[in-house]
Amino acid sequence: MGYFEGFDVAGFWEDSPVARDEYAEMTPPAPEVIASVEEELGGYRLPGSYVELMGVRNGGVPVRVRFPMSEPTSWAGDHLVINGIMGIGRTRPCSLGGEFGSRFWIEEWEYPDIGVYFADTPSAGHDMLALDYRACGAGGEPVVVHVDQENDFAITFAAESFEAFARGLESTAFGL
C-alpha cells in the first residue's frame, strides 16, 4: 500500500503491561473485524495507514509519545502527549470498539461526533485525539485533530493524516 515507507514500524511500539492489557488486541485485525468496527463507529472508513500500522501490532503504546503542535492547546504551548493508540477490535478496554473506545467518548463524555477518537492523553479523558472526517466525509482521508473537553471541546489541527501523526511522534524528556 505504500504507507510508512522507510519508517521503523516494528520499533514503533513499546512493550509494557499497560500496552498489552489496555490497548493491544491479540491479533492483527481481520478484514471482517475492520468492517464491523467501522460500521460500529458510524460508517467511518479507517485510513489505510491506520489499518497497516495495526497489522504490525494492533494498538498499544508508542515508544515516542510527544507530538509537536503549531498552536497551543490546554496541554502545552507547543506539544501534546498521548497515552496510547487504540487497536481495531473490541477485546481491550482502549480499543476502538472497547469499553473506552471511540463511541464511549462521544456517547458518555459528549465529545463532538466528528469521526473516530483513536488516542487518549494523560489528562484522563479531558482531551483526546481524533480522526476528523468533517471535510472529507466518512469514506475520505481524515486529518488528525486534538479535542479539548476542558475548553468547550475546542478542536485544534494536529496533522494532515494519521501517517503524518505517527511519523511526527517524538521522544519525550521525563514523559512530558
Rank of each mutant, 00 (worst) to 15 (best):
M1R: 06
Y3T: 05
G6T: 01
G6C: 04
D8G: 06
G11C: 10
E14F: 08
D15K: 11
P17Y: 03
E22Y: 11
E22C: 11
Y23P: 05
T27G: 02
P31G: 09
P31I: 03
I34H: 01
A35T: 08
S36I: 03
S36V: 08
E40C: 12
P47Q: 01
S49C: 00
Y50A: 00
L53G: 01
L53H: 02
M54N: 02
G55A: 06
G55K: 10
P62A: 00
P62G: 01
P62Y: 09
V63W: 13
F67W: 11
E71F: 09
E71G: 04
S74E: 15
W75S: 14
D78F: 13
L80V: 12
I82T: 05
N83T: 15
N83D: 15
G84I: 10
I85H: 00
G87K: 03
G87W: 04
R90W: 09
S95R: 04
G97I: 07
G98N: 02
E99S: 06
F100T: 10
F100D: 09
G101D: 04
R103F: 02
I106K: 14
E108K: 15
E108A: 15
W109K: 15
P112K: 08
S123H: 10
A124K: 14
D127E: 15
M128R: 12
L129S: 04
L131T: 02
Y133K: 08
C136Y: 07
G137S: 05
G137H: 04
A138F: 04
G139A: 12
G139K: 11
P142L: 02
V143P: 01
V143E: 07
V145Y: 07
V145I: 02
D148H: 14
D148W: 14
F153H: 13
I155D: 07
I155A: 02
F157G: 01
A159H: 01
E160M: 02
E160R: 09
S161D: 01
F162G: 00
F162L: 00
A166I: 07
G168Y: 07
E170P: 00
S171C: 03
S171P: 03
T172R: 10
T172S: 13
T172E: 13
A173C: 11
G175H: 14
G175K: 13
G175R: 13
G175V: 12
L176F: 15
L176S: 14
